[in-house]
Design a protein around this nucleic acid. Structure first.
Lengths: 214, 214
DNA sequence: CCGCATCCGTTTCGATACTG
DNA sequence: CAGTATCGAAACGGATGCGG
């Protein structure tokens, strides 16, 4: 298990479980749904297999992650968050909110995944209550969807079963909207973003993703 | 500087700044006000001087911490958070909130500081708007105060200039209230807690610190 | 005393290679 | 696909030393 801080403090205790390198990023990946080992490897470029395996072992021992065997044809195992670990969504959200302010321009060595931006936006953006809807995002070859439900935006891996709107763009374009570098209402954004289905709702969602400018 | 994750993701970026061991606990200490190097050493039992010095150097380089020289008589330097770093209060709050659920009983090797519990409670507890008040806490030899202002509870090191109420107890008693192991209205709590000044308000504050039981 | 810097043994990380 | 084995590099932790 992880090294203790020897402090009777909730913050220190939380860090003993998720404070090690890569751990919170694994949680980030699993917040969008169950994943296989190799899915996590590709979603976490830079991590090495032994570290990932060690973290998953520790998280499983702490009952924050459960290993589940998929039924018949798929013959594979997936990792998923337990209910207790889903409480970490607030921690990841706070990190995403603060981290957005210092994201800046991507370094040449930075990998970009649409899932990371979608997650950050979804967990930090309040959704209108009572107006449930599902949006599918296609960001290069990544497909995800976001469900607006109960005042929250719930992001998920994979396509939506019955999306109200489909939004297609590059992950960098979405990042530019998130950082405020690109106004989703600008003609420039219109060239970079394609919407299908309820385009009006899709536009409204993208506008809520744009930070308030002073 | 800290090692990069090589990911263009707000969460990863935040972790590059505050994800290393001890860093977020240093922020925890500084959220209650400026501190000298040795203050931080005693507030962070277990940290070694070289690691603390290294973290402070990195935080200063990232402009999250500023080193300030105290005027004439005190002839000393203090570290304090910059405005940007104060945005981490939300991260620490989320950690404290989640960590509270797994705090349990203190291990025999655990140090206990009243400041840790007061901070955790203050940042996770909503305060009534429009009813500003100042509470002084005396937890063994530690003295802190909490100001209710604008719907938030602002914790601080040291005594209050003009407290509405003074609350005296052991840090473990406060922790027991925080975890729900002790009902602040119980006769047992009455024996362990002393209040001066506006005792009614003090009781109300302690009740808001108690988690909702199901 | 305060605020570190230096040294050194131990632990952890990261990259690559290898296996059922 | 899902990891384990190995090994050099980096980080951590504890002790000591030292200038202001």
């Amino acid at each position: 298990m992880a090294r203790s801080y020897g402090q009777y403090c909730p913050v220190a205790r939380a860090l003993e479980f998720v404070g090690e390198r890569w751990t919170l990023l694994i949680v980030r990946e699993l917040l969008l749904g169950p994943r296989r080992f190799t899915d996590l490897m590709t979603g976490l470029p830079g991590v090495s297999a032994n570290v990932l395996a060690a973290r998953l072992r520790d998280l499983e021992a702490a009952e924050l992650v459960a290993k589940r065997s998929l039924p018949a044809p798929a013959a594979s195992t997936v990792y998923e968050l337990t209910d207790h670990a889903r409480g970490l969504a607030a921690v990841v959200a706070a990190m995403a909110d603060w981290g957005m302010t210092l994201l800046g321009q991507p370094a040449t060595t930075d990998e970009i995944r649409g899932a990371w931006i979608v997650l950050a936006l979804a967990v930090t953006t309040p959704a209108p209550r009572g107006a449930d809807a599902t949006y599918e995002f296609r960001l290069d070859d990544e497909v995800l969807h976001v469900r607006s439900h109960g005042g929250h935006l719930q992001p998920r891996h994979g396509p939506a079963a019955n999306p109200d709107a489909v939004i297609t763009m590059g992950p960098k374009t979405l990042a530019a909207i998130a950082t405020g570098d690109l106004d989703p209402n600008s003609p420039q954004a219109n060239k970079l973003v394609t919407t299908q289905g309820d385009s009006r709702a899709a536009r409204r969602l993208l506008m809520t993703f744009s930070p308030i400018r002073s």
